[in-house]
């Protein structure tokens, strides 16, 4: 069955057509909703693209600084591909796919872009720092979770406000939130391009993902520079392929960035 669908996807693409009628470089309907868990989380958001849906939330905590970075705080990203969101996801410890998304898309996009100034997360040099925990969950997997996960993490961070912290007693009052948010210098936008045959498409559906041998997730910032790249899949890419894919992700990154307010 999978093979039939795969063959169909490929033969359509050879005519520059897709199963759902989109152009090769066309994104599905994309929406962001902020504050979807505002009672509990200091920042939260939901991203939908077509039938794909993910949610993300931010919690702050205070702890001792790391010995090698005494003047910095930190972020920790966690992604869970919930069995609620797809018949193929299983319960149990995090799958390699979810670890890849957390590390290679959310964490690296934020860390390497320097979007978040970790020095501003230091409370007292060599002693206390903020840890920003970002947890992302899939609600429905209809393809391209990679982009959805990266984008919802950014949205949740944009939505976040620090809770009140009593430095003397070393207690966070989660009931009370300050007006201070996280300053994001850039919006690192991940765009995944998949290669099927000789064609490149963005925002793939599950059927298209299953037909692809290679994907490249390129995270770019406002000035068009890439700040993180992750190749996925078992296939290969030529330098020319990579060039085309990066160009496509820069263009699409610009379009999607406009949707963040």
């Amino acid at each position: 069955m999978k093979d039939i669908v795969r063959t169909h996807v490929v033969s359509l693409l050879n005519k520059d057509a897709r199963l759902d009628g989109r152009k090769l470089d066309e994104y599905r309907k994309f929406t962001i909703e902020y504050g979807i868990s505002s009672k509990s989380a200091e920042g939260s958001a939901r991203v939908k693209m077509g039938d794909t849906e993910v949610v993300g939330g931010v919690k702050f905590l205070v702890g001792p600084t790391y010995p090698d970075t005494p003047d910095k705080g930190t972020i920790v990203a966690n992604v869970e591909l919930l069995p609620l969101s797809s018949p193929v996801f299983e319960t149990g410890p995090p799958s390699i796919q979810s670890i890849e998304y957390a590390r290679a898309i959310v964490d690296r996009g934020l860390r390497e872009s320097d979007a978040l100034d970790m020095r501003k997360l230091c409370i007292k040099r060599g002693e206390k720092m903020w840890t920003v925990m970002i947890d992302v969950y899939s609600i429905n997997d209809a393809g391209n979770l990679a982009d959805a996960i990266g984008l919802v993490a950014i949205a949740a961070l944009k939505d976040a406000k620090f809770p009140k912290y009593d430095a003397e007693k070393d207690i966070i009052n989660y009931e009370e939130r300050t007006k201070k948010g996280l300053e994001l210098k850039y919006l690192p936008i991940p765009i995944t391009i998949v290669k099927i045959g000789s064609k490149f498409i963005i925002d793939p559906t599950v059927e298209e993902e299953n037909a692809a041998e290679t994907r490249l997730t390129v995270t770019t910032i406002e000035d068009g520079r890439a700040c993180a790249i992750q190749k996925g899949g078992e296939g290969t890419l030529t330098p020319e392929d990579i060039d085309k894919m990066i160009q496509l992700s820069i263009e699409k990154g610009k379009e999607l960035r406009k949707l963040f307010k």
């Binding site: 009672k39 509990s40 989380a41 939260s44 949610v55 919690k59 947890d135 989660y174």
Partner: peptide
């Protein structure tokens, strides 16, 4: 419970 869904500290996953 999603990790950010508690009213106090982050809920440990799993």
């Amino acid at each position: 419970m999603m990790s950010f869904s508690g009213s106090g500290e982050r809920v440990r996953p799993g």
